[in-house]
Nucleic acid binder design. Structure first.
Lengths: 344, 344
DNA sequence: ATGAAAGCGCTAACAG
DNA sequence: CTGTTAGCGCTTTCAT
């Protein structure tokens, strides 16, 4: 940390006391000080290249104006838009987001929370979806406000901001039904994620209601590779189904890859629907039919909820559900007549 | 900032002086203190849920163990891998990356530097590529170490870590030549970016050497939309060319979209090559032939260079050029016989 | 309108 | 081995 200019150096330069400099440079107290002196102080500060030390200020004021944002994986394209939403809401309000990529690992996540706590963030936005999260109870006791984004996290009574998973799945099922599909598969994410579970359960129920058969297979991670792997074994079993709904676009991407490798045409022989409408879902081949989740809005709303907790000094386990919409692209089509797609 | 447990509370609880607590809790000085006392202190700290205040520590030690990372756009998929590389290098060394998304706007970038300076980061990694960057000279004067990642930034003598643009373009041109292409177009990025300029210049030169005609058109931003727009006007002109090399995968994506809209088949009627091999470039339709830049390595190496500047207390304008490789996928193919792709 | 002085939480000499 | 003391850079009473 290269030695930086301090208040007292500015004070000496301007020939006033540090307190005066502090007042002159702080917009809120600027009016207190003589206009001429203030100008002199400002000039001195500029000449010296003064940059306030925000840590010293925070130490004194007991407020950091920061919020810790914990996400499981920055390289997952659904998170950058959420982050953008958060920052866009925070910045005009004087808050700064401190980002932490936990890499999906519980250990790193623990250290992320610790590291951010050491920085005395005023609150957290947590987008990691592990249920039974070991840290949340600890955090809760410490009284720091937390908002859960995108995924719930079990028993802790924190506000949760999420897309409408049920509605999204319903829309997907309706779409498939209209296209004549009767036998479908749901590629679920790890059931330790609340969203994965909700989507899977809703899928089963919605299919029942619609009079469709639905089989659920579970991927061990929300990645394209896992989606591919699961689909490989699925196709090897030569079951009868004509459509696959994946819990996540990344999983759906893996499904698409597997189909391609198996020489199965999508959507002619197999329809595929994802979830999230992540950036570039449109570019997949074929363009992915999916449920659009308002990712940036989730970020914005999470930040808003956190600010609310901050100002009210308390929070309730409110759930904010944002509307989703089905985006029909090229990966879904009429169900093949025979319905024996995997048995040529 | 909710009131947190302080050292002195732990001290009271353990029945010792704060200094002893500080020593007991700091691994480096832990050996100085009586084993039994240390245990008692640790117990007290744990019971109270003590979390050190890192700002107070930094204030005292004059070292924050943080580096500021400034990127122009978090939603551009080339950056998350770089960030991962940076963090992976930094974390084991006790450093934390403070991220700042400048959104590509000069104003925000200014405030990013300011905000990070106020946090007294020990150094910067800047991945924003504006030449004539107004802030760099200022930063330079302040003596804070800086490393430029991915894109150079003009006259300031900072280390630069980048992929081998020349080699990448050469490889692309060779590839096109082998496929029989003789008339090509380079879709350049804004020439205010150093990489855009280098790629464009190398392209022109390499084509000359290879005996190919090369036309350069400039996009106003490194986005798919701009790539699309540029290609639209290009196709409207009905020029003779059989391949397009884009300065960036995002631009190439736009090219692909435009071709599709114009009913032009890729690669049968028009070959396309990108640059970067961004995540998901493989998923485009068709899968994008491109130059793979080791994004994560660029991050890692940038961090390494910064650590070096930090420990040596000085830095030189060294340029670290990382090797790139051509990834051939489905978007390039044999040049059409006639070479009059846009004049059916 | 400005100065003096205290103190945020921590570490690092310096004593003992 | 442990306590005392000072001070990092800043804001905020309290005086003047």
């Amino acid at each position: 940390m290269p030695k930086q200019v301090t208040l007292s150096e500015v004070a000496t330069r301007a020939g006033v006391h540090v307190a005066t400099v502090s007042r002159a440079l702080n917009p809120a107290t600027r009016s207190i000080v003589n206009e001429k002196t203030a100008r002199r102080v400002e000039a001195a500060a500029k000449e010296l290249g003064y940059v306030p030390n925000i840590m010293a200020r925070s130490l004194r004021t007991q407020s950091t104006m920061t919020v810790g944002v914990i996400i499981p994986d920055l390289t997952n394209p659904i998170f950058p838009p959420m982050i953008r939403g958060i920052e866009n809401y925070l910045a005009p309000r004087g808050y700064t987001a401190l980002l932490s990529d936990s890499d999906g690992k519980a250990a790193l996540e623990r250290s992320a929370v610790t590291s951010l706590s050491e920085r005395r963030v005023d609150g957290f936005i947590i987008a990691t979806g592990l249920e039974q999260h070991p840290l949340l109870p600890t955090l809760f006791e410490s009284g720091v406000p937390v908002v859960l984004a995108n995924r719930g996290a079990g028993e802790v009574p924190y506000p949760l901001v999420t897309g409408n998973d049920e509605a999204g799945i319903q829309a997907a099922v309706s779409h498939l039904k209209e296209l004549g599909h009767r036998d479908v598969v749901h590629v679920a994410g790890p059931q330790s994620f609340s969203t994965s579970r909700i989507r899977a359960e809703t899928m089963v129920r919605a299919c029942e209601v619609a009079g469709m058969r639905c089989r659920v297979v579970e991927a061990t991670a929300l990645t394209a590779d896992e989606g591919e792997k699961v689909t490989d074994t699925l196709l090897a079993e030569k079951q009868n189904f004509t459509a696959i709904q994946a819990s996540t676009d990344l999983l759906a991407l893996g499904v698409l890859r597997s189909l391609r490798r198996h020489g199965m045409r999508c959507p002619e022989e197999m329809s595929v629907i994802g979830f999230n409408d992540m950036p570039f879902a449109e570019e997949f081949s074929p363009g992915l039919t999916t449920v659009r989740v308002p990712l940036e809005d989730i970020g914005t709303e999470s930040a808003r909820q956190l600010m609310r907790s901050l100002s009210e000094g308390s929070s309730s386990p409110i759930v904010v559900t944002l509307p989703v919409s089905l985006i029909v692209r090229a990966s879904t089509g009429q169900a093949p007549r025979a319905g024996v797609s995997t048995q040529p």
